[in-house]
Amino acid sequence: MGKIIFIEHDQTEHVAEFEAGSSVMQIAVDNAIPGIDGDCGGECACGTCHVIITNEWFSKTGTPGNEEEQMLSMTPERASTSRLGCQVVTTDEMDGMTVHLPEFQM
């Protein structure tokens, strides 16, 4: 059990509890965090769960794979610590992680 802090583009903060093993997208959707759509249901195929991880947490989330890289490259709000939420599987180490949401999903 841990907590993830989602910060919307207008700075509204949401705290969501999670069990290690679920994806950041799933946690957001389960907690009805506005600004994450997850249209493809976690297949890395739509780009609508784009999150921007804060610098200090980015290394804990692993590296994006080729498919993810391809989808991320299509979003105009791409940042250096962008990830697709469905591809970030949470671990206990991510307790307290802060992620920012883009202004729009693709």
């Binding site: 759509d37 249209d39 493809c40 249901g41 729009f104």
Partner: peptide, 20 residues
């Protein structure tokens, strides 16, 4: 509940650009 999961926009790199 899962209406948004529809395939009409396609998936992957060719996903509809005008969806929004």
């Amino acid at each position: 509940k899962d209406a948004r999961n529809h395939m009409s926009f396609g998936y992957g790199v060719h996903r509809c650009m005008g969806n929004r």
